[in-house]
Amino acid sequence: MKVSHYFEFESRVTGGIRESVAHQRKMLDRLGIEYTTEPTLEADVFHCNLLGPRSAWYARRAARRGVPVVANAHVTAEDFGDSFRFTNALARPLRPYLQWAYGLADALVCPSEYNRGVIESYVDVPTTVISNGVDREKLAGFEALEATYRERYDLEAPVVFLVGHVIKRKGLETFVETARRLPDVDFAWFGPLDLSLKGRETTALIEESPENCTFTGYVDDIRGAYAAGDVFCFPTHEENEGIALLEAMTAGKPAVVRDIEPFAWLEDGRECVKTAADAGVDAFVEAIERLADPDLRDRLGANAAARSEEFSLDAVAERYRSLYEEVV
């Protein structure tokens, strides 16, 4: 079997989608499935990760050639808003485009049951839930970087942290205001800032954040973020899955999350602390104060690490082989 595993805009897209594609290709390597990263219909399966215009062009012609099309449903109108400048304006017209584009596929891959529910409101195309997975090898040896990264960013334990692009949708305002309410606790958001791409409100939140709230910008070794952090504070309002959350769990870090549908699989008080879906800053302050207890952090972190094993690339990979065999 040969797969055309195409990632349109590969040189420009970063963040979780890029990580997911890297994970998929590692899984195909482990499965021994031959693939090319070039778009071609000289393959048994055309698999695209972003249904941009070029991917759609190939998908439409694949139907005529009898080549099955698999597409990952990374993007929804629901999670597109409150990301970068102009994304709110684009979110509404994005939905009808995605309905058309996803309708070109023979099978859609959804990273979570929540995402599948959203996608099934778009199109009547068979869906399969396959987690983005977590690359445990990428995090190997992270513990050794603790002192280096805490010294680099002047952080003192217990550190409340987040990893990923700094965008409003991920709960930026809650993160900043929680830090403001807890001036004796260090908060750090590890990830690209891209201020030129941010709206005025997002830029103001970053620039006017309190002294105990650090925005590191791009981190050369992401393992350092998980080494420096103690509590993963993820007040996102919308998420398809959340690779950074899976990585934090793999590193044994307890998380504070909202009780929203994407995180329904997490058990409050076992692997994480949950706040109400519409919780304000008070709830996050209370959760962080609870996790000042090192014994609670250790217990939740150990449970999180154990739970994360079901998302390892080895555990997920076989689902791609099954899907390809099914569509072929």
Rank of each mutant, 00 (worst) to 15 (best):
V21M: 00
R321H: 02
D79A: 14
A244D: 06
D259C: 09
E78K: 09
W265S: 15
R270M: 09
F311T: 08
V13P: 02
A62L: 03
F215Q: 07
G103P: 10
F215K: 09
V163D: 09
R85H: 11
V21K: 00
T216C: 06
V285I: 09
Y149Q: 02
D186P: 13
I130W: 04
L246R: 07
F7Q: 01
D282I: 15
E38D: 09
R54G: 01
E151V: 09
L31D: 02
S4C: 10
P96V: 08
A305H: 05
R290S: 13
R150P: 05
T250G: 05
R25A: 03
A292V: 14
G217T: 14
D194A: 13
S308A: 12
A63V: 14
A306T: 14
P235I: 00
A22L: 12
E241L: 11
E207K: 12
V75A: 04
G301R: 03
V257M: 04
N72Q: 12
A317N: 00
R85I: 12
L195Q: 14
R61P: 04
G117W: 08
A71R: 03
D29I: 00
E310I: 07
A43G: 07
V185K: 10
R12T: 14
V328M: 05
A63R: 14
G269M: 05
I260K: 12
L195A: 11
E156Y: 12
P68Y: 08
L139D: 04
E310Q: 15
D293T: 11
C233M: 15
Y320C: 04
G141F: 11
E241R: 10
P183Y: 05
A264G: 12
V163W: 08
D220W: 11
M249Y: 08
E177C: 10
F84I: 14
V316Q: 00
T37E: 10
K274F: 10
A73D: 05
V125I: 08
P262D: 05
R319Y: 03
G16Y: 00
V123W: 10
G133F: 05
Q99H: 07
G117S: 11
N88K: 15
L28N: 01
P192M: 10
A228F: 10
R92M: 11
Y324H: 00
C233G: 13
E201M: 13
P210G: 01
A244M: 08
D314Y: 04
P183M: 01
V273Q: 08
L108N: 02
F234C: 14
P192G: 13
C233L: 14
G191F: 04
S4V: 04
V285C: 05
I167Y: 11
P192Y: 10
T216F: 08
N132Q: 09
F7E: 02
E211A: 04
R30M: 09
V273L: 13
G301F: 01
I260W: 04
I119G: 10
A277V: 07
R299W: 14
F46I: 05
H5G: 13
P68F: 09
F9H: 06
